[in-house]
Design a protein around this nucleic acid. Sequence first.
DNA 1: CCTAAATAGTACTAAATAAGTACAGTATTA
DNA 2: TAATACTGTACTTATTTAGTACTATTTAGG
Lengths: 131, 131
Amino acid sequence: MFKVNKLTDYATVVMVDLVSADLARPSQKIANNTGIPYPTVNKLMKDLLQAGLVRSHRGINGGYSLASPAHKITIADIIQAVEGPIALTSCVNNSLDKCSYENFCAVQGRWNRVNKAVVKALKKVTVADMT
Amino acid sequence: MFKVNKLTDYATVVMVDLVSADLARPSQKIANNTGIPYPTVNKLMKDLLQAGLVRSHRGINGGYSLASPAHKITIADIIQAVEGPIALTSCVNNSLDKCSYENFCAVQGRWNRVNKAVVKALKKVTVADMT
DNA sequence: CCTAAATAGTACTAAATAAGTACAGTATTA
DNA sequence: TAATACTGTACTTATTTAGTACTATTTAGG
Ligand code: FES
Ligand code: FES
């Protein structure tokens, strides 16, 4: 199947939940709001934080909040945060791993075009659109 | 990672190889041309055949050929042939499985928009473009 | 009609990836 | 200083993908 990770799906749900947060919202509360298990939310937040999509605040009254306005965070951002660089095949430019057929392959580099088209499509939809 | 199956990647290589085939080309020859292992080619052809992307001919001098002109076969077609319907999440309309959060989910149905955008992008690139 | 070439279908095994869980550590505020 | 909540890492299990094997069926040609 051609699909995003379940965690990416969850991440969008989390991001949408955070849209309505005025102050920092703890993982526990996010879990309650969304129905996503607490440990899973916890794991997600680490990825979203590292990618700079959310801000965190420790201690009592701590929690997470969006790092940018909802209409500036795209689905592409969320996918990249959770799953790493978007590379439909391993012979796409920004892929982490290397294609083993590269030496004698007939479609060498052609996937770049497809990849760009998909990324462009994913950048068009924002968290605000998902609300 | 957000990516297509390796088999899908191989499938495009196979399709591109078939562009240059005047008569039916056997799996074995496709394997030789592309460097993809023979058993794997064999497996692929079954999927491509079922999806109607190639035509087959049995017996001596048999083999496979494209069912339509190269510029009419899209990357979306190939992905669907190998991986089934394109459904980025399980709550997308044409998905085979059902989303378990559907009852209380905040982004319910919103992925349809993303999915459509991606499919549209994948339909824009054809086998001819990959040659 | 018989044989060799080649596809068609099914089922199994092994490898890779994703999902879920656990836990010890650190910062913050009341 | 105690309670709250994030941070980081590592582990286990489940699921999916990739690869392999084998049998049956069809076709062309001698
Ligand atoms: S499949 Fe990777 S270079 Fe062709
Ligand atoms: S994640 Fe499937 S309905 Fe929301």
